[in-house]
């Protein structure tokens, strides 16, 4: 191999350019998949999530951002999902039990299971899911998106939903923590209840 000076120089330049490109394309080696990139972006985002209007099983309007003094936890589901969305319900169940242990938290946290299956998830199905996971309809509401607001909503959370030929949909499953001012504060795997709780405690502040 007789690399001459010029070629060596060019090779160095290409290596630097290539490594920088890869560094940028992976957010500094932190995100190789869109899912991890989505989470990083959510944490770094400057804007708040949109003030979407959702509706519950009785057709009442529910606001994604209702009060400026609560932390909102969000999961995206469709009620007929046989797998992930049931785990999502279980995860929320566990989070709620932990939240209820501290009165201060119990007052400052609300949880939304939002269905993106606006066609099929009618009132009955939402109620079934709520009953199945013991959502109380107060602190934890099972709601569905409205058709017109759905794309913007999914976009704001970076959620991708694709129809699955075998059953329903495939979609990102995670617990999204929305700060009091509407900014995303963190996205956690369904197993990472500790992570969710730590973030929530941090946002709500010390129990008095």
């Amino acid at each position: 191999m007789n690399l001459k000076g010029k070629a060596l120089l060019a090779a160095c330049a290409v290596s630097i350019a290539g490594l920088s490109a890869l560094w940028l394309a992976t957010d500094g080696g932190r995100a190789l998949t869109s899912e991890s990139a989505r989470r990083l972006r959510a944490l770094a985002a400057t804007g708040a999530v949109p003030p979407s209007v959702l509706e519950d099983s009785r057709g009442r309007e529910i606001l994604l951002r209702s009060r400026a003094d609560v932390v909102t936890l969000v999961e995206f589901i469709y009620t007929t999902c046989p797998t992930v969305c049931q785990s999502a319900g279980d995860a929320f169940f566990k989070v709620r039990s932990r939240v209820l242990q501290t009165p201060k938290l119990a007052q400052s946290v609300r949880m939304l299971s939002i269905s993106f299956d606006v066609e099929k998830d009618g009132p009955d199905r939402l109620d079934d899911y709520a009953r199945g996971h013991e959502a109380d309809g107060q602190m934890w509401k099972v709601v569905r998106a409205r058709r017109d607001g759905l794309p913007g909503l999914l976009d704001a959370f970076g959620v991708v939903v694709i129809p699955n030929p075998a059953y329903g949909y495939t979609h990102n499953a995670a617990i999204h923590v929305v700060r009091q001012d509407g900014h995303l504060a963190g996205i956690y795997d369904l197993e990472d209840i500790d992570g969710v709780m730590a973030n929530v405690r941090n946002l709500v502040g010390p129990a008095t």
Partner: peptide
């Protein structure tokens, strides 16, 4: 001269390959 032994061209191809190997770029 600048690409003696094909080294530079091959490096470019390797980096491009690495870039497109990342799942998020496929997305």
């Amino acid at each position: 001269d600048w690409n003696a032994g094909g080294s530079v061209g091959i490096l470019v191809a390797l980096f491009a390959g690495a870039f497109w190997m990342l799942p998020r770029n496929i997305d």
